[in-house]
Write a protein that binds this DNA or RNA. Structure first.
Lengths: 194, 194
DNA sequence: ATCAAGAGTTCGCCAGATCGAACGCACCAC
DNA sequence: GTGGTGCGTTCGATCTGGCGAACTCTTGAT
C-alpha cells in the first residue's frame, strides 16, 4: 500500500520555509558556497543568505536566477522530497478489475507531484552487470519487466524480476540492471525530482 | 548522453511572460473574472492585472496565493503547456546505447514537472472495446505494450500497437484501449496534472 | 436616457525585497 | 604574530512590487 507521503499537505505549508530548505539542500548538493551561488545567479549574497534562513519572500526573477545557478529548474525549489526501495511482483498490488472484464489494471506507484518523469523502453541482453544511466541526486527509478528476466535494484541487494514484476529504487546510489535472459525488455520511469 | 529536451531552455525563458500566460490560461479555465480571482487570492486586482499583462515580477507569496485561488499547484504556473497524441514505434525514438553493450534505452517521454504520475500494469484480454479509467481534465496517458497487440488512443482514431510500441494521448477525451490478442500486457503512466 | 454593477486598467504611496559595503570568523602562508 | 583569502551574516540606502482609490468601458435594468 502506498504511504502517500506526497508532502504537499503535510509539509509546513509555508512555501517560504520549503524554499529555504530547498535552496540550502540544492546548494549543498552542488558543493558551491553561498557567495559562489549568489555571484553566479547575479543576486546579492545577502539576499541569498536571508532566503536560506527562511526570511524574505523572493520574487520569481530571483528564484529563477537561483534555480539556473544551481542547475535545477525552479519548480524543484518549491517542492518537497523523499525515496526508498519496493518490489511489487506480477499479480500483486492493488488490482482494479473491469467488471466488463477483459481487462485489469494494477496501480504500481502514485508518484510525487513536482517531479519530472522520463519514460524509457529498455532492451537488455545478458552480460556483465552494470550501473544504469547516470543520475542526478534525488532521482528514483521505477522499472517493470515486460519480457525475459533481469536482476535489478541496489547494487548490494539486487532483486530478480520476471515479466510484470515492478521495482522502485533510488537512482542516485549504486544500482544495477542486468539481464538474465536474451531478449529481456523492460519499461522504466525515471523520476527526476526536477 | 541525454538530449535534455526538457523544454526548459527552449521556452521563452522569460519566466514572466510564461507566468502571465499561465495565469491567464488558468483563470480562463476556471471561468472566473480577474476581480474574482484577485479577491479570492487576497491580492489586489491591480496586481493581478499587471501580472497577467506580463508586467511585474511577482513574489512567491503572491504567486502561491494565486495558485491556491485558481486551484492549481503553483509549479503549474511556472511551467509550459502540453502536447497531443504521439506514437513511438518499437525501435524508433532516441536510443541510448551502452557502449559496454548488452543494453539500450529509448527515451519515450520527458514528462512535465508539476504533474502527478501513476504507474499501472495492465493485463488485457480481447473483448468489446472500452473506455479506460475515469479521468480528470488535463490528464495524459502514456502506454507501452509489453506483450500481445492492442488498439489504443483516441476513440475516433485508435492506433494498433505491438510489443515495445509507445503511445501518448489525452486522457480527458473519449479514448479506448482494446486487446487484439489474448495475454496482452502493457504498462501505463497516467499523468494527472496533480 | 439614466443609473448601477461589474469588468479591467492606471496612478501615487508605502512596506519590504534587493543591493552593496562592512562585519566577524575560520583557515592558511609566511 | 601579521596579512590574506574565503566563508556567511548584518546593516543602511535604494528600488520596486503590491495595495487601494480613481478611472474607463461595457452591460443590463428601469
Amino acid at each position: 500500500m502506498f504511504v502517500k507521503t506526497n508532502g504537499w499537505t503535510s509539509v509546513s505549508n509555508a512555501p517560504l520555509d520549503l524554499i529555504a530548505a530547498n535552496l540550502r539542500r540544492e546548494r549543498d548538493r552542488t558543493g558551491m558556497s553561498l557567495s559562489e551561488v549568489a555571484k553566479k545567479a547575479g543576486v546579492a549574497k545577502s539576499t541569498l543568505s536571508q532566503l536560506e534562513s527562511g526570511a524574505g519572500n523572493p520574487s520569481v526573477e530571483t528564484l529563477w536566477a537561483l534555480g539556473v545557478a544551481l542547475g535545477v529548474p525552479f519548480s524543484q525549489l518549491v517542492e518537497p522530497a523523499i525515496p526508498r526501495v519496493q518490489v511489487i511482483r506480477a499479480g500483486e498490488g492493488p488490482v482494479i478489475h473491469s467488471e466488463r472484464a477483459h481487462y485489469s489494471a494494477t496501480l504500481l506507484a502514485a508518484c510525487r507531484p513536482g517531479t519530472k518523469h522520463d519514460i524509457y523502453w529498455l532492451a537488455l541482453e545478458p552480460g556483465g552487470a552494470r550501473e544504469s544511466l547516470p543520475h542526478v541526486p534525488g532521482s528514483i527509478e521505477h522499472m517493470i519487466v515486460a519480457t525475459g528476466r533481469c536482476l535489478a535494484g541496489l547494487a548490494d541487494d539486487p532483486v530478480e524480476l520476471g515479466p510484470g514484476d515492478y521495482i522502485v529504487y533510488p537512482g542516485d546510489v549504486p544500482h544495477i540492471c542486468k539481464a538474465l535472459e536474451p531478449g529481456t525488455t523492460a519499461m522504466m520511469v525515471m523520476e527526476h525530482t526536477v
